[in-house]
Design a protein around this nucleic acid. Structure first.
Lengths: 204, 204
DNA sequence: CAAGTTTTTTACCATTTGGTAAAGTTACGA
DNA sequence: TCGTAACTTTACCAAATGGTAAAAAACTTG
């Protein structure tokens, strides 16, 4: 996309990473339209035309970010293993999601922004990448339920609720910080609550 | 703000409503910066300077929307009554939140956008309006728990999880539509799932 | 170290966008 | 029905913004 078709140099790899890192924070908090090239340039100590040297356009940065992070973002779901203990597999997935909310709130908000706005740049990716994975993992969960290992319920809605609750802590942090001050205890309280909640829901 | 201090005329009331209605949809899906005055003008069949006649600036429209809708948005939480049956009060609240997600997805997304971006225009309002209400209702829930009417857990996190799950259906609809096609059955399935889930969590 | 290639910087441009000035039109009370 | 105040429209502007051209600088390699 950016260069015809050549192996990227060291400087290229480095600087694209710098750009992505700066853009991630800005897109996550101001959205695509709310972020300017000048802001990105500023945040990574480059000049605007230099960005365009590495990425064809502002949109190209955004798209690259979404694509790059998508895989990483979905890996915990993929890691849920049909052979493991059902309850512990799902709880393990929830723990990893909570951890990601804490460690990578920018990524969470980037996706939140994109989806809230109708996923204009990600719909095809959702169809082609997320959907098959989602259906597969729903199938695994459904089987666990049929085997009586966990309580029966709609697998898709179960996953939605896991996403909703775990990502809420990253996406709505501004609100949570107002309502539940005291940063230190919050994360542990959240982890404990969410695990307790889903254990209770999933226990047959 | 807009006019010194006079009772609004019929035309004024009408047109401000038209502007708010158009702006609500646009701000909800494109965010504040992603929405232009021209788009709003177009959407409500007015000309740009006419908007500025009714609202001092684009930001004034946004702020008015947030303030106008905040109260309405929080009313279900306020309606949770300490004298009622604890489990049914909370389930009733959840039902109302699900209904609002279905009937007013634009409002939900407007707030989601605002909070994800750090609530730049709403933080004071959260402090002054939401926080007291939140603390009060947390207190009611805590008492219900102490009395053994519902299972014990952290009331604040319980409310967060209710918000997360119910609003998820409005805010992430684009994703849900891809993963769970078939519009008609979805809403009922969601309602049933969410009610089942929280009943299970809350039952002592 | 010289020639060529990659990267950075400066100067610039066209379009978009939030907003204004002021003339024109409509509604409405006396 | 007439005058005035409320409302609408046209024409316009300054700043911001995404992006380009091309020269300058730095790096790579024979």
């Amino acid at each position: 996309m950016t260069s015809p078709a050549r192996k990227p140099s060291r400087i290229q790899t480095e600087n694209r990473q710098r750009i992505r890192d700066a853009a991630l924070g800005l897109f996550a908090t101001h959205g695509f339209r709310g972020t300017t090239l000048d802001q990105i340039a500023d945040a990574c100590g480059m000049h605007k035309p230099n960005l365009i040297y590495y990425y064809d356009s502002k949109e190209a940065i955004h798209i690259d970010l979404l694509n790059t992070l998508m895989e990483e973002w979905l890996s915990p779901l993929d890691a849920m293993n049909a052979e493991g203990d059902p309850l512990e597999e799902i709880i393990g997935y929830i723990r990893r999601k909570m951890e990601m909310s804490r460690l990578y709130p920018r990524e969470s908000r980037l996706f939140a922004n994109e989806i809230v706005q109708g996923a204009p740049r990600m719909l095809p990716h959702l169809e082609s990448t997320l959907k098959p994975l989602f259906d597969r993992q729903c199938g695994i969960i459904a089987k666990w339920m049929k085997d009586g290992k966990i309580a029966e319920m709609h697998p898709a809605h179960l996953i939605f609720s896991i996403w909703a609750v775990t990502q809420h802590y990253a996406d709505f942090e501004a609100q949570i910080a107002v309502l539940l001050p005291g940063d230190d205890k919050r994360a542990r309280g959240a982890d404990q609550f969410v695990e307790m909640m889903f254990r209770k829901v999933l226990t047959p």
